[in-house]
């Protein structure tokens, strides 16, 4: 009885915890997206940073490029994402 109550409370709070960082995570993803976009700017026609620098950073950009790609794929539903974040359904 006590154990299950504990588990319930843990789940209860962890869901709060998850929700609490939604906004920051959204912000983080946006920034990561921008960072990757700027580095690969020559793809979309904006000036690129020093090529040497881009080449040195690229190998460490797995996550950022992944985020950028997902962002590009979800582009048509960006309002959906924001609405979800604000609990508008």
């Amino acid at each position: 009885m006590f154990e299950s109550l504990k588990a319930f409370l843990k789940g209860f709070f962890s869901s709060f915890k998850d929700q609490s960082t939604d906004y920051i995570e959204f912000e983080e993803r946006e920034l990561e997206n921008v960072f990757a976009l700027v580095l690969m700017g020559s793809f979309i026609g904006i000036p690129s940073p020093p090529t040497t620098l881009v080449m040195r950073i690229m190998p460490h950009m797995v996550r950022e490029i992944y985020v950028m790609q997902r962002r590009a794929a979800d582009m048509d539903d960006i309002f959906g994402e924001i609405a979800g974040m604000f609990d508008i359904t």
Binding site: K17, E28, L31, V38
Partner: peptide
């Protein structure tokens, strides 16, 4: 000169990303 400006701006953005990550990490 030009490379310096680029690098400084990129460092700024990167710092922001890391700030967010640390904030999330503190909670999660």
């Amino acid at each position: 000169n030009i490379a310096m400006i680029w690098t400084e701006k990129l460092i700024e953005v990167r710092r922001k990303i890391l700030d967010r990550r640390r904030a999330i990490e503190n909670i999660q």
